[in-house]
């Protein structure tokens, strides 16, 4: 059996519905909410603020510190144990590395910018949703940024290359599956995150990344809209 039609009747290059909003957490310096399909992420940015322990300070630049957290009942299956685990640590680290190329924190030596990503509900693609939300939140915090980062998962099921896999698709058993989250810098189209779960031939990988870069445009539009909507009614 081959995978000719997607479970939710989407086209193979079509993402799930995207919604985003900036400035959702009052106490944070910058914040955002990003929803793609059933996956929802909140990001809160605090800082630049002073950094302790002192050995973590970097005198030549400010540092970025990300924290990815899935809420206990966010998944469709069992309760997730709250707090840090191996997976959350890894995702926090790749999120940081995906966002750093656009950020310029040299203005803030010895300081830290904290990004907290919370996921109240997940249905695959949570690290991508987290990166998208964090990019909006960092811009909302007024930090110097060259560009926005848009992340999306691409992949394959059998012979089909597709974008934005849902959990159902990620767990497809009859054909080999690959899940490839990527993050794209919008102006230069450079890639700042590329991971893979599963296996994929070279040609399909190249095709999948191309599809992902095209799909990232829609995410970028949603991110811009979220930031501009915060100041709509702006007549000054």
């Amino acid at each position: 059996m081959s995978y000719n039609e997607r479970f939710d009747k989407r086209k193979f290059d079509q993402t799930r519905p995207i919604e985003a909003k900036a400035g959702v957490i009052k106490n944070a310096d910058g914040s955002a909410w990003f929803k793609i399909g059933k996956t929802e992420a909140f990001a809160a940015v605090y800082g630049p603020r002073d950094l302790y322990p002192k050995f973590m300070q970097n005198p030549s630049t400010g540092i970025l510190r990300c924290n990815y957290n899935m809420m206990p009942f966010s998944g469709s299956g069992d309760r997730v144990r709250p707090g840090q685990n191996r997976r959350a640590k890894e995702i926090s680290m790749v999120t940081e590395k995906a966002l750093l190329p656009v950020l310029d924190l040299t203005e803030f030596p010895n300081a830290v910018v904290d990004v907290f990503i919370e996921l109240p509900q997940t249905d695959a693609g949570s690290r991508c949703a987290g990166i998208c939300a964090a990019a909006i939140a960092l811009a909302d915090a007024g930090l110097p940024m060259k560009d926005l980062v848009s992340a999306i998962a691409v992949g394959r099921i059998g012979d089909q290359v597709l974008v934005d896999l849902s959990y159902e698709e990620e767990a497809f058993e009859d054909d080999p599956v690959a899940d490839i989250p990527i993050a794209v810098l919008n102006n230069s189209k450079q890639i700042s995150l590329l991971q893979m779960d599963g296996e994929v031939p070279k040609e399909m990988l190249i095709k999948a990344i191309k599809l992902g870069i095209d799909a990232s445009k829609q995410i970028h539009d949603a991110q811009i809209k979220a930031l501009k909507d915060k100041y709509s009614g702006d007549s000054q």
Binding site: D29, F108, A139, G142, P144, K146, N187, Q236
Partner: peptide, 26 residues
């Protein structure tokens, strides 16, 4: 020329700058 911050565009002659709307005190 690209923007590197969220803010209001201010054009005076040929000079373009961004007036920030958010951010902590520096």
């Amino acid at each position: 020329v690209y923007s590197s911050r969220l803010g209001l565009v201010n054009v005076s002659g040929k000079v373009i700058k961004i007036i920030p709307l958010t951010g902590v005190y520096n």
